[in-house]
Computed example of a mutant assay.
Amino acid sequence: MTINIGETVFFGAARFCRVGMAIALLGIAGCSSTNTSRPVPMAENAGPKDTGTFPNLNIPPQVANKQFTADESKAKLAELKAAKNGQGAKSAGGAAGNQAALTDLAKKHGPQTLEQIEGKCDPTLDPTCK
């Protein structure tokens, strides 16, 4: 009981003092006086200048190749869509397309894997193991 009271009195007060000191320091730092009543003078020749160093961000970059026209873009997009559809047609057949085969595989795969993990049946050591 005494320890809890001591923590509340001493550490609680110190926490408030630290927070108060931090607020005071931030207030002092934030209120430093600067003369903002006059506008800042601008350089006479303000603007982008070529300094001769790399990279010069004031010069637009050159394109690596000519850009696609709208017709070329449509042709390339049609070619990509045709390739996509061709890939989809290939994967639709076989065991992946047959839901019954996938369900049967799911029923058998789990128990077979557990048997191999538990060491009850190792097909590499015993070729007759199923």
Rank of each mutant, 00 (worst) to 15 (best):
R15E: 06
R15M: 01
F16H: 15
F16K: 14
C17H: 03
C17R: 04
R18M: 05
R18D: 03
G20R: 05
G20N: 06
G20C: 05
M21Q: 14
M21A: 11
A22C: 12
I23N: 11
A24I: 04
L26S: 06
L26Q: 06
L26Y: 07
L26H: 10
L26A: 10
G27H: 10
A29R: 09
G30K: 05
S32C: 13
S32L: 14
S33H: 15
T34K: 10
N35T: 05
T36N: 15
S37V: 05
S37R: 13
R38C: 05
R38Q: 11
P41D: 03
M42W: 09
M42S: 12
M42T: 14
E44H: 14
E44L: 10
N45M: 08
D50M: 08
T51K: 08
G52E: 00
F54I: 03
F54M: 08
P55A: 01
P55T: 00
N56Y: 14
N56E: 11
N56Q: 15
L57V: 03
L57H: 12
N58C: 02
P61A: 03
V63E: 08
V63T: 11
V63A: 11
N65E: 15
N65A: 15
F68Y: 15
T69F: 01
D71G: 01
S73L: 09
S73Q: 12
A75T: 06
K76P: 02
K76L: 10
A78L: 06
E79A: 09
E79L: 00
L80C: 12
K81C: 02
K81T: 02
A82N: 11
A82E: 07
A82C: 02
A83K: 14
K84E: 05
N85V: 05
G86W: 03
G86N: 06
G86V: 00
G88R: 08
G88S: 06
G88I: 03
